[in-house]
Design a protein around this nucleic acid. Structure first.
Lengths: 203, 203
DNA sequence: TTGCATTAATGAACAGTGTTCAGTATAATT
DNA sequence: AATTATACTGAACACTGTTCATTAATGCAA
């Protein structure tokens, strides 16, 4: 009975094709301009077909959200190979910033955009983010325990650290750095991050 | 010839009414759900009328953007009364966070949202933001010069500081704090900010 | 192989969006 | 009173997300 399996596979492939087209359009033209009809056009199916595979537009972008988190985890996972906690913390920050600047649309989708969150609040996509954050917390805790950095509560230090990096990146991604006219935000972000790190470092 | 003046006044008042309705709807229901037609309904005019006073929807929200920055300046201006630079820096942060949490939609509009920026890039609305940022820079420079805080370049320290506060706030405003389930983000943000401040402080 | 049931895909429609424009009604000027 | 200028609007266009009855294709049992 290979038929049921074939059908299942075809269903998966169709989902895949929709997501591929959606991601391509989304990265190319942004969220606003990526309509169901355009996705349908791209895969040469009727708009209604997409609703056989996804509940609504939110679910499509939620899936992209999940996939983006997948790549995010892969990227952030590299930091586990760095033994020294202090160096690891620095590494995490740099990789985070790099990921965000290299994939601004996906970062936007994950940490800034509003739309895809509304439908599903409980999400395994977020679990990945949670894991990444725990990785940071663990690292910060190690640094604190070994007396390498300043700070009281590792949770708040982690949060502050995440917040600062997200803030730097989010302002750049959403084009809110008009005061540094024309300059490449990349350098500023890294410079500011270094400043944060040196602030954090004891002596 | 009071007629021309009356007409001009009426034009201003109409603009005002549109903006008022737009702001009310926007704060109440968010950007997505605030349509030109609903604004028109609220002021009991036809949708087409709005286009006699504003080029397009972007311009309406750009104007709100500008107004929000006005209130922002007023709020931030309070910090000028704080003489001690260290205390002033702390004050700026607290007021900033407070403004953002008290007016999340307006903060969103100013520093996160995408839509209103696309039409006009050159903006006097942003000049206010610029001024506020310079206020922070000045304060940071004072603190650095007096040897009160850590750091090298005052510009990057300011940027890092702004970034960190924006990051903390933006994550809250856009609902990205799922790891702290159900807890009030307000306390976390202030706790994290305190951590940032104590990190920054020398000894 | 034929007939039936299941599944997949669609066209058309609904209610909504931003925006434009010809036309109307009102007010101001001559 | 006739003419010009201004303010406003209804209707339309091209979109949007979404639903649903209808059609086309497929799988299965007789």
């Amino acid at each position: 009975m290979g038929i049921a399996e074939r059908k299942e596979r075809e269903k998966r492939e169709m989902r895949e094709r929709i997501l591929e087209a959606a991601m391509r359009l989304f990265v190319e033209h942004g969220f606003e301009k990526t309509s169901i009809r355009k996705i349908a056009d791209a895969i040469e199916y009727s708009p209604a077909t997409i609703y056989l595979y996804f509940k609504d537009k939110s679910e499509v972008f939620f899936e992209l959200h999940r996939m983006a988190f997948g790549r995010f985890r892969e990227t952030m996972g590299q930091s586990l190979h760095v033994a020294d906690p202090m160096e690891r913390m620095r590494f995490i920050g740099r990789v985070y910033i790099d990921f965000a600047l290299q994939n601004p649309e996906q970062y936007d989708l994950m940490f800034i955009m509003r739309a895809p969150m509304e439908s599903k609040t409980e999400t395994d996509g977020w679990e990945v983010g949670h894991k990444a954050f725990e990785m940071l917390e663990t690292t910060v805790k190690e640094c604190l325990d070994q007396g390498l950095i300043q700070g009281e509560d590792y949770r708040f230090v982690s949060y502050a650290l995440w917040g600062s990096v997200h803030g730097l990146v989010a302002l750049a991604v959403r084009d809110r750095l008009k005061m540094y006219d024309e300059e490449d935000p990349r350098e500023h972000i890294f410079a500011a991050f270094d400043e944060v790190m040196s602030m954090l470092t004891l002596n």
